[in-house]
Design a protein around this nucleic acid. Structure first.
Lengths: 124, 124
DNA sequence: TTTATGATTAAGCAATTATTTAATTGTTGA
DNA sequence: TCAACAATTAAATAATTGCTTAATCATAAA
């Protein structure tokens, strides 16, 4: 897997040490999958919302100002990534953030990243 | 901006409280932009690598097993998002992670997400 | 069993994007 | 100035994806 030697040996880096820090395929796939989910603004807004309340599809759609098929599409992706869970109550499906370490960590991260990238909006 | 009333009033949520938690457009854009960068496996691998060493394009390409134009493309995206910086030394361009709170926070996040999504790879 | 409502799925489209190959720019040394 | 090497850019392509409209599924009430 991968080359044995680097094209250039610049001296200031120990190649062995570099490769030690490289994560495996599974780790790359897992992390990028989670990041990808929240890399879409619509999905991020929905996930962020569902971190703070449980809501049905129509209400989510109204809050984020999107069509319900579009919302449903994103909910499906978030759910199959294990970031949210759903529950049926009558005709409605309620969604909320999953009670997992992954989802909680991502919630913490986006709150923190929000403050870093938008420091002036500390008011909320 | 957005509707005034939700289609359904289910009682268990205070609509005012919900809207308070909704981040503004700038915050959404900033966070999703950062997440998007690391949502691509190739870019995540490159960023991860550059968190631990400074390397030239050819070496990066060899390590992640990609062509140099492809690597150059991803480096440009990472750089214009402020996640990495570059420095020329002779014919080579050296890249490394930016010394900013954003980049450091993302580094911490991917290490943590890696452990969560791949707990068995604790050995590294 | 209808009818109405909420949610999902299907099909299609427009836009974005990751990668390849080829051409070009920038830098060093002969 | 020329040749070699590193890096970037351009053009083209294939694949992914976010969203729309229309149709279908699921549940509840008349």
């Amino acid at each position: 897997m991968g080359q044995q030697n680097l094209p250039h040996d610049h001296g200031h880096n120990d190649e062995r040490k570099i490769r030690e820090h490289l994560p495996g395929e599974n780790e790359i796939a897992g992390v990028s999958e989670a990041m990808k989910q929240l890399g879409d603004p619509s999905r991020l807004r929905i996930f962020w919302l569902l971190c703070h309340c449980e809501e049905c599809v129509l209400n989510i759609a109204a809050i984020v100002n999107m069509s319900s098929p579009a919302v449903s599409h994103h909910l499906r992706l978030l759910k199959s990534s294990g970031l949210i869970v759903s529950r049926r109550e009558g005709k409605e499906m309620y969604y909320k953030t999953a009670d997992t370490e992954l989802a909680q960590t991502l919630h913490y991260m986006i709150e923190k990243l929000g403050k870093i990238t938008c420091p002036q909006e500390e008011l909320s």
